Amino acid sequence: MTPAFLFAALLWYPMQLRMNRLMQEQHLPAIPALHEAANEVIAAQIRHTAIPRRFSTPLREIWELQLRLPRRQGHRAARLMEHPRFRAAYDLLLLRESSGEDLGGLSQWWTDYQAADGQDREALQGDVAPAAKKPRARRRRPRTRPRDA
């Protein structure tokens, strides 16, 4: 266990509470709310405990991966597993679920996915509901003005 992981685990719930409050009060999207909450929680903790940047940067990455782990459609799961902080994020996910947080069996899915071979991984991804697609903004052709004759 690294100090970054320990800080990520210990400060997860204060950060999550602050993030949720920012999302409700300031209507921030999840990632910007996470970044702002992380800044505030780490700043408050630094008043009591020194956290060098070599630990605070991975700590932030572990937290950000907590928001990415539920999104496993397509090639996302394979790409997430290649992330250098994936294992720490996965371990935090296990801790969160074992402490009673209802994540809908997400940690079990990741456990099965890591143990599976290629075909089994495809089957596991087939069980994941596709993400709701946001409608794309349509580009309009510029209006052409009639030339003055």
Score class of each variant (00 low, 15 high):
Leu59Glu: 04
Pro135Val: 14
Gln108Ala: 13
Val41Trp: 12
Phe7Ala: 06
Phe5Asp: 07
Arg141Glu: 14
Ala149Asn: 06
Arg139Thr: 00
Gly104Pro: 06
Met19Pro: 04
Gly105Trp: 13
Gln73Met: 08
Glu82Met: 08
Thr57Met: 14
Leu17Tyr: 04
Trp110Lys: 07
Ala33Gln: 07
Pro52Gly: 10
Ser107Cys: 13
Thr57Ile: 12
Asp91Ser: 08
Trp12Gln: 01
Leu124Asp: 02
Leu95Ile: 14
Arg54Trp: 10
Thr144Arg: 15
Ser56Thr: 05
Ala33Val: 01
Ser99Cys: 11
Ala38Tyr: 10
Ser99Pro: 09
Arg54Glu: 10
Ala9Phe: 01
Ile42Met: 07
Met1Cys: 12
Ile31Trp: 13
Gln24Phe: 05
Ala129Thr: 11
Arg139Val: 00
Arg141Gln: 13
Ala43Asn: 04
Ala37Met: 04
Ala77Leu: 01
Arg87Thr: 09
Arg96Tyr: 03
Leu69Pro: 00
Gln16Glu: 07
Leu80Val: 01
His75Met: 08
Arg68Thr: 10
Arg141Met: 13
Glu61Lys: 15
Leu6Arg: 13
Val41Cys: 05
Asp127Thr: 15
Pro32Leu: 07
Glu97Val: 09
Arg136Pro: 05
Arg96Pro: 08
Asp91Glu: 09
Pro84His: 05
Leu6Lys: 12
Ala149Leu: 01
Pro3Val: 08
Leu59Gly: 03
Ala89Asp: 00
Pro52Gln: 09
Glu97Trp: 04
Glu64Cys: 02
Leu6Ala: 15
Phe86Leu: 06
Met1Val: 11
Glu101Leu: 15
Ala89Val: 03
Leu80His: 03
Arg47Tyr: 02
Trp109Val: 05
Arg136Gly: 11
Leu69Tyr: 01
Ala38Cys: 06
Gly118Pro: 03
Ser56Leu: 07
Arg96Ser: 07
Arg143Lys: 10
Trp110Phe: 01
Gln73Gly: 11
